[in-house]
Design a protein around this nucleic acid. Structure first.
Length: 259
DNA sequence: ATGCCTCCCCGAGGGAGA
């Protein structure tokens, strides 16, 4: 089973980019972030016509997450537990029902800039809620994964110019520590389980020719429970998509699981 | 790099993104 996470940066503005990618790359499951659409406005039919079940959790203007799956989706939940007053659409979960069920969590973690400030506080509070959800997920001892745009640069080698990110919310020690604390519950970060070394990125800014200079950062991740990590064959970044016409500023990151 | 682009809101220009 091939699962991809992709920050699409506007599902309506990039519907052709999305459908071309789904048709060519054929993910079994695609987990989307920044769909920037309310559920009623989501181009559901176009994606269903390509053979996908569609579950969305959107809001007006920005944020928004979705799960697309060729296999049935069950037990869909929306919103990260821990704060009933949080109206931002950044979390969706569903169980993909194949030969062996897998719990899929799609997340769009807050950016947090400028730091320090209220947006940074929101990021850290959101990560504390994520920690608690991750701990519950781990205690089930079943195949599960949390994937999406984490807005976290885990290590210096995950940025082309780490010195440019020193004071940024994506790379500040508090952010990286919060990410590490979640990983240390026992999750496997799929890409680093499969590949080492620098120059592997999942985001390049639209500005200043960042893609042409390969001035990127790796901020889109898969965290797998041990029972899911046992099924991991490979993890890769589909970086070529960034050079296509009308690209998102992110590219898809994939895992292949033995299911 | 005080966001150099690009999305969304809408119907001008501002918020948000990383």
């Amino acid at each position: 089973m091939k699962i991809a996470t992709f920050n699409i940066n506007g599902v309506k503005a990039r519907i052709d980019t999305l459908t071309t990618w789904l048709t060519e790359s054929q993910p079994d499951v695609a987990v989307l972030q920044e769909v920037k659409s309310v559920d009623e406005g989501f181009p559901r039919q176009i994606i269903e016509d390509l053979g996908y079940n569609v579950e969305t959790h959107g809001q007006k203007g920005f944020n928004g997450v979705a799960i697309l799956s060729k296999l049935p989706l069950e037990d869909v939940t929306r919103g990260l537990p821990g704060d009933d007053t949080d109206a931002q659409a950044r979390w969706i979960e569903a169980t993909v029902v194949g030969d062996k069920p897998v719990r899929i969590c799609g997340l769009y973690l807050p950016n947090g800039n400028p730091a320090p400030g209220p947006k940074f506080d929101y990021k850290l509070a959101w990560m504390d809620r994520l920690y608690h959800r991750a701990r519950d997920l781990m205690s089930r001892e079943e195949p599960a994964l949390m994937c999406g745009d984490y807005n976290i640069i885990p290590q210096p080698e995950d940025a082309a110019r780490p010195s440019a990110w020193t004071d940024d919310a994506l790379f500040r020690p508090e952010s990286r520590a919060a990410f590490r604390k979640i990983v240390n519950l026992g999750f496997t970060e799929a890409f680093r389980a499969c590949h080492t070394g620098p120059a592997h990125y999942s985001f390049w800014d639209y500005q200043a020719g960042a893609w042409d200079r390969n001035d990127g950062i790796r901020i889109d991740h898969f965290l797998l429970t041990p029972q899911c990590a046992d099924l991991l064959n490979d993890c890769w970044i589909e970086s070529a998509l960034r050079g296509r016409e009308k690209p998102s500023d992110h590219v898809p990151v994939w895992v292949d699981l033995s299911i």
